[in-house]
Amino acid sequence: MKEMLDTALSSENTILIQKTLRSGQSIKHSGNVVILGDVNPGAEVVAGGHVVVMGAVRGMVHAGAFGDENATVTAFCLNPIQLRICNYITRIPDGNHPEPTEPETARIINQGIVIENISLQGNRLF
């Protein structure tokens, strides 16, 4: 998580959105997008690079929208209606599912979108 944040934040072309995106709101950006809030159902984020959401993703996120297969989507609660990375699309299965309780990252592995749990455990320096 920290690593991801560092890359996203240190990259030149990153924007910071300090609010929750509500239904009908949309962010389009050529680089990375960091959101301090949630992405609600009906809202969308389209980024050329990575997307990091310090909150819940319940809407649509598209990372690497202009062809970057290495783009990732990271969120504290990754529960999108639909998730896109580069040319890949995945959607939540039909039916009711419990929301994830731990941060996760989605990335392309072997021609498919894979969601990995990221551990926040480890050393903390004060």
Binding site: G24, Q82, I89, R91, I92, D94
Partner: peptide
């Protein structure tokens, strides 16, 4: 447009591209 609902009522929201 802007207040779509039919997809949700039909349970098809996750298929919209």
């Amino acid at each position: 447009i802007g207040l779509r609902n039919l997809d949700v009522v039909m349970g098809l929201e996750n298929r919209i591209v």
